[in-house]
């Protein structure tokens, strides 16, 4: 029987949450359009992770280990996806829309001469055909698209689905593939400070704008320290607007928006940001948005579920106190 193939991304020897989210999506879609499910794990650590997909309901797991996959190269990894898709008669190929996922799936689509619906936030199955929703124009419109060739390919934005455990018996198969010579060589991976959660992977984000003030001033220092304290209390990652990272107040990897990272966490707390259209582009698909701004006319309030008009220097400490009280009762 034909299958849905889920291509995965192994980072630091781990399958990050986004892969599990796509497993869950694949299991749901497979039921609706009557296909089996297959996960593809390739690379050095693949075999050690082979039991994981079945925990999320994926019936078959294909492991590809090859000297050419020892280090990541987009062309070789894409060739692996395309080749496994052919061998397993994949009718649908899915992957998480990380930077690497988007790149790899574009390449695999080119090899398989089909089309790719990129960075989707929903799907719909109707009469056996899949339709995907994807934000365009930085989220100002949503398009519904269909892939009119086979296989149907799509990447899903992080946090579109919640991983659901749904254990089945693992059927693991090792495949030997005939792969091309890699065209690029991965020399090194530099990761951000250990233990720091990237905004693109976070369920909760506390984010600060220019109204937080320069951290080199006493007032700014206090505000940013409070923001970090709140983030730590609720287990959130910290983010910021573009001028904040441009001025070096915060590191570039925290920059959210049209020219930075796109996030859709469960909770986005926006502190002293105006809510410019280019910033909203990166966070307006968050499930719940709290805005704190001293200006009641700030556009961010239009995007917010909960708005507090007030000075950040007072509101943040009050929030910290409230959350502490709440946690003390847990």
């Amino acid at each position: 029987m034909s299958t849905i193939l889920v291509a995965t991304e192994i980072r630091q020897g781990e399958l990050k949450s986004i892969n599990l989210e796509v497993f869950t999506a694949a299991v749901k879609i497979a039921k609706e359009i009557n296909l089996t499910t297959t996960a593809l794990l390739s690379g050095k650590n693949a075999a050690s992770l082979a039991e994981i997909p079945a925990k999320y309901g994926i019936e078959h797991t294909v492991v590809v280990e090859d000297a050419k996959l020892e280090k990541y190269s987009p062309d070789c990894y894409a060739a692996a996806i395309a080749e496994v898709a052919r061998q397993k008669d994949a009718k649908v190929i899915l992957m998480g829309a990380t930077y690497t996922g988007k790149d790899l799936m574009s390449r695999a689509a080119q090899i398989l001469d089909t089309a790719l619906a990129q960075d989707c936030t929903a799907y719909r199955a109707e009469g056996g055909a899949l339709r995907f929703t994807r934000p365009m124009y930085a989220g100002k419109v949503r398009a519904e698209v269909r892939v009119a060739s086979a296989p149907v390919m799509a990447t899903f934005r992080a946090k579109t689905f919640k991983p659901e455990e749904n254990p089945v018996a693992a059927k693991v198969e090792k495949l030997q593939l005939n792969l091309p010579e890699p065209l690029t060589v991965l020399e090194a991976i530099e990761t951000a400070a250990a233990g720091k959660l990237d905004v693109s992977e976070a369920d909760l984000i506390v984010s600060g704008g220019r109204g937080m003030k320069d951290p080199n001033t006493p007032e700014g220092k206090e505000n940013w320290a409070n923001l970090e304290k709140l983030a730590e209390l609720i287990g959130a990652a910290t983010g910021c607007s573009r001028p904040v990272s441009d001025d070096g107040w915060r590191s570039h990897d925290e920059h959210i928006g049209q020219t930075g990272k796109t996030v859709s966490p469960m909770l986005y707390i926006s502190c002293a940001m105006s809510g410019a259209i280019q910033h909203l582009a990166g966070m307006s698909s968050s499930k719940c948005i709290v805005a704190i701004n001293k200006d009641p006319e700030a556009p961010i309030f239009k995007a917010a579920d909960y708005g507090i008009v007030g000075d950040i220097a007072q509101v943040l400490p009050a929030m910290i106190e409230e959350v502490k009280k709440l946690k003390a009762r847990d």
Partner: peptide
């Protein structure tokens, strides 16, 4: 092969459930 069938605006937030 990628067909755009429909465009819509994202649903408007029923903004500021509490706005205090």
């Amino acid at each position: 092969k990628l067909l755009l069938e429909k465009m819509e605006y994202p649903p408007a937030k029923q903004s500021g459930k509490i706005f205090a």
